[in-house]
């Protein structure tokens, strides 16, 4: 069973067209890992017709709470805004492959041999990949910061690079988990003027792993930067989605290894940067 009728606990605005929704779940939350998403049915019977894929921003397994951060951009998300605490939502999930999370407290190398490159081969499921004593950076842009919060909570004080167009949000929540925190806005109203990729580019040699989620241009630049500097890189991708479970084949993204497509919903949404490519 992967569909659940969940109850909305809270739903409030955090910035222009940006909202945070807290949902109480009896099963989905307990299976969730950082970087996964849920697929939500909202509205009347046929309008909108499809579910809406939304990243899981945070979860609290003790309370059974899932937090979603969403930007209002169409028919479905407009309806999300109108939901109130106590309302119920038909939610499918958790779906997709999340971030390979390393926690220095929990994961220790069994022997020095274990850190061999084979352990991080692309053939391994992401959940089995571990990064021992690695220096980590997390970079997010706009609403793309959503799946990164739960990730940051599970990392050991990563350096965090966030970028926004003008208005910032969730800054305190992120900076609390950061080693060094970098904030950028396009107009320089808050933090530095420009894009977080600029700072990451300067510091790239400090890192062994970079996690990213945000606009395609940011992901593409992060991929190029990391690969040019031999830094392991994980990207959370977005594509228009249908079923969310790998049956309809519409959420296709280009595979870097062959000329075929990967399914964002089940092969991702988190990919090793070497698995995907951006230019057609």
């Amino acid at each position: 069973m992967r569909c659940e009728i969940c109850t909305i606990v809270d739903n409030y605005r955090v910035a222009t067209d940006t909202y945070k929704m807290v949902i109480e779940s009896k099963s989905i939350v307990f299976e969730a890992s950082a970087g996964q998403f849920v697929h939500i049915r909202v509205g009347g019977e046929y309008d909108p017709l499809l579910r809406r894929p939304i990243s899981i921003c945070e979860f609290d397994k003790e309370k059974g709470y899932l937090t979603l951060l969403y930007r209002v951009c169409g028919k479905g998300t407009k309806l999300f805004v109108n939901t109130r605490p106590g309302d119920s939502l038909d939610i499918m999930g958790p779906l997709g492959k999340g971030f390979p999370v390393f926690n220095t407290e929990l994961t220790r190398p069994k022997s020095s041999m274990d850190s061999a490159n084979t352990q991080r081969g692309l053939n391994l499921p992401l959940s089995e990949v571990s990064f021992n004593d690695k220096k980590v950076a997390v970079i997010g842009g706009g609403i793309g910061i959503a799946p990164l919060l739960e990730l940051c909570k599970n990392l050991n004080k990563p350096d965090i690079y966030l970028g926004f167009r003008d208005e910032t949000y969730m800054v305190d929540e992120f900076s609390e988990h950061a080693g060094t925190f970098y904030l950028y806005t396009e107009d320089g109203k808050e933090g530095c003027k420009g894009y977080p990729i600029e700072a990451l580019a300067k510091n790239i040699n400090n890192y062994e792993v970079v996690y990213a989620c945000g606009p395609k241009i940011m992901l593409s630049k992060t991929k190029n930067l990391c690969e040019a500097n031999s830094v392991e890189c994980y990207l959370s991708m977005e594509e228009k989605m249908g079923c969310g479970i790998g049956a309809c084949l519409v959420c296709a993204c280009k595979s870097a290894q062959d000329d075929l497509y990967k399914k964002v919903c089940v092969d991702g949404p988190v990919f090793n940067s070497k698995e995907v490519k951006f230019n057609d």
Partner: peptide, 9 residues
């Protein structure tokens, strides 16, 4: 298969 986008509601 075809180049994305592949779906529109």
């Amino acid at each position: 298969g075809n180049k994305p986008p592949r779906i529109a509601e």
